[in-house]
Design a protein around this nucleic acid. Structure first.
Length: 200
DNA sequence: ATGTTGATTGGCT
DNA sequence: GCCAATCAACATT
C-alpha cells in the first residue's frame, strides 16, 4: 500500500487494513496472510492512555516509542512479557504517536514456513493472535523501523478488494490491564465478522 | 540502583 | 478459569 494509505488517522487505517494481505519475505519466499483483526492506538489528535506514545514519558518520545512519532508507513515492533514481539504499522501525521496493532491473520501463503516458526502448531493456531503472527512471520526487533512502502523490502502490505462495511465488527481493545477509562472501553478493535482466525 | 509491569501465550485444573 | 514464563522499558529512589 502507498504511504498515503497509512497517513490517515489510526482508526480509519485499522478498518481499511481488514482484508488486506500482509506479506513477509523469508529466505526469498513469500509468507502471507489476510489481516482479519486490528486495534487502533491514538487517533490523530486525541489522547489515548492505552497508547505507549501517550502513556510513557508524558507523551514525549522515548527510545522505544520514537518510531511511533515518525512518519506513517513504518513498522513499530516491540518486545513484551519477556518473550513476545508485537507488530504495528505507524499511521497519522509525523509528530503524533499513532499506530495500528495487527492482531490476527488468516494464513494464505507459506504455511509450511509459518508452521516451522510456530513449532509445528496446528493450522488454526498459526496466526490467531498478535504474538503468534509475529512468530509465524519471523518478526522481531530487526524489523523495527522498517519502511513498509519500500520497493525492495522484506515486509509490506498488498491491496485487496475492500471488506463490505457490514462485515466489520468493533469492540474494546484486548489486554489493556489498568488503562483508565474511558480508553479501556473505547471500541477501537476491529475484526472481520465470523472469521475463525480472530483472536477472541 | 532497584522495583514494577506488560497491546500475550500455553499448560494445567 | 488460573497462572507461570521472562525481561526490557520505564518510574522511582
Amino acid at each position: 500500500m502507498p504511504q498515503a494509505f497509512y497517513a490517515r488517522c489510526a482508526r480509519a487505517v485499522a478498518q481499511s487494513l481488514l482484508g488486506k494481505r500482509l506479506v513477509r519475505l523469508i529466505d526469498g519466499r513469500r509468507v502471507a496472510g489476510i489481516i482479519v483483526e486490528t486495534e487502533a492506538y491514538c487517533d490523530t489528535d486525541e489522547r489515548d492512555m492505552a497508547c505507549h506514545g501517550d502513556r510513557a514519558n508524558n507523551g514525549r518520545p522515548t527510545p522505544r516509542t520514537a518510531i511511533m512519532f515518525g512518519p506513517a508507513g513504518y513498522a513499530y515492533v516491540y518486545f513484551t512479557y519477556g518473550m513476545h514481539w508485537m507488530f504495528n504499522v505507524v499511521t497519522g501525521p509525523t509528530g503524533k504517536a499513532n499506530a495500528v496493532l495487527i492482531r490476527a491473520l488468516e494464513p494464505v501463503e507459506g504455511i509450511e514456513i509459518m508452521q516451522r516458526h510456530r513449532n509445528g502448531r496446528s493450522f488454526h493456531q498459526l496466526t490467531n493472535g498478535p504474538a503468534k503472527l509475529a512468530q509465524a512471520l519471523a518478526i522481531d526487533q530487526s524489523l523495527n523501523g522498517t519502511n513498509l512502502c519500500q520497493p525492495d523490502g522484506v515486509i509490506w502490505i498488498e491491496d485487496t478488494p475492500p471488506i463490505p462495511p457490514e462485515k466489520i465488527r468493533t469492540g474494546p481493545r484486548i489486554g489493556l490491564g489498568k488503562t483508565p477509562e474511558p480508553w479501556l472501553s473505547m471500541p477501537w478493535r476491529y475484526w472481520i465478522d465470523g472469521n475463525p482466525f480472530v483472536s477472541k
